[in-house]
């Protein structure tokens, strides 16, 4: 999390992405309910939340794929609804599914994507050469995308998203389904895009990914913002200061769980352990109540955040 100190921007310049009061109803369900988002140049905003929290719908509104029922979205000062062409010229998108064009080669995909933008990217062939080299795609430039491994397909998707040199990039679960090595390679690419000054909005299910890449987090739950800010602040708000781990098979554990539940805590079982988020007074009370019970205490992480939100949803 130390990169928060280096990458977080307390900038007074207007954010490249500014979305306020977003609302979207699909069918009978309000999928997004009054969400605000901002993202500055050189910043990665991580959107987190369980399935159905509204992450992808929020992102799709921000890049103009879906129309917001209410709210306002601007990309570098251009309203996505009323100045669609200008706003869309300044943004790039890597969708959750592979939406490259398999009728073209890897290089052909980048060329064709470039044709979908005006004003045209200056010196597009040279830009494509540079991207192919930088994304490690040069050896596969003349292959069809379907012949690539999952990691290289995602690299192509990200390269397509930036071929026209946008200011804001939306990455919707860019590493889902990749092996660890491929994920790290994609993370490195995302970090270089941040270093170039792009504003990046990222959705992910992987907590380690969110922790490593995001300068700020925004946690969505049931279409609303549950918590927002620096990772540690978000964890403190949603989870608590400490997480106590109890062995599920320990004889005294059921009594301790009853004690926690009476206090209003929400123990969550993960494999062989129970996880209980506590503040400092709660931890002190637990230690006093069960002095002989073995336990571990650690700082909360983003997995605990997901468990906490899932617990709230179940309740």
């Amino acid at each position: 999390m130390d990169k928060n100190a280096t990458h977080h921007h307390e900038s007074h310049t207007p954010p490249l992405l500014q979305a306020t009061g977003l609302v979207k109803t699909l069918g009978a369900k309000r999928v997004v309910d009054n969400i605000d988002l901002t993202c500055q140049a050189g910043e990665v905003l991580g959107l987190l939340g369980p399935n159905g929290a509204g992450k992808t719908t929020t992102l799709r509104m921000c890049y103009g794929y879906l129309r917001a029922d209410a709210g306002h979205i601007s990309i570098a000062g251009h309203d996505i609804a009323t100045q669609a062409d200008k706003a869309r010229r300044l943004l790039g998108v890597c969708t959750q599914d592979d939406t490259y064009d398999n009728d073209f080669t890897v290089r052909g995909n980048l060329e064709q994507t470039g044709r979908y933008y005006r004003p045209r990217q200056a010196d597009l062939p040279a830009r494509i050469d540079a991207l192919l080299k930088r994304f490690g795609l040069a050896p596969y430039a003349h292959q069809k995308p379907d012949t690539l491994s999952g990691g290289y397909k995602r690299r192509l998707m990200i390269a397509r998203a930036v071929v026209h040199q946008p200011s804001v990039v939306f990455l919707d679960e860019p590493t889902t389904g990749l092996d660890p090595q491929a994920r790290v390679a994609v993370w490195e690419l995302i970090n270089t895009l941040r270093d170039e000054g792009l504003a990046i909005v990222l959705t992910t299910h992987y907590m380690d990914e969110a922790a490593r890449l995001s300068d700020r987090l925004q946690v969505l739950q049931d279409g609303r913002v549950r918590a927002a800010g620096l990772a540690q602040d978000v964890l403190g708000d949603v989870v608590g200061e400490h997480v106590v781990l109890l062995a599920a098979r320990a004889p005294e554990t059921p009594n301790a769980l009853d004690w926690f539940r009476k206090r209003g805590d929400k123990p969550a079982q993960v494999l062989a352990n129970w996880h209980i988020a506590l503040d400092a007074p709660g931890l002190a009370a637990f230690v006093a109540a069960f002095p002989s019970l073995p336990y571990e205490v650690r700082q909360p992480n983003l997995d605990d955040l997901f468990l906490a939100i899932a617990g709230e949803d179940a309740a």
Partner: peptide, 14 residues
């Protein structure tokens, strides 16, 4: 199946 529409719709094409 090809999702080429979705790919186009993330650009300036509506």
């Amino acid at each position: 199946f090809q999702k080429s529409w979705e790919g186009q719709l993330t650009t300036q094409v509506r």
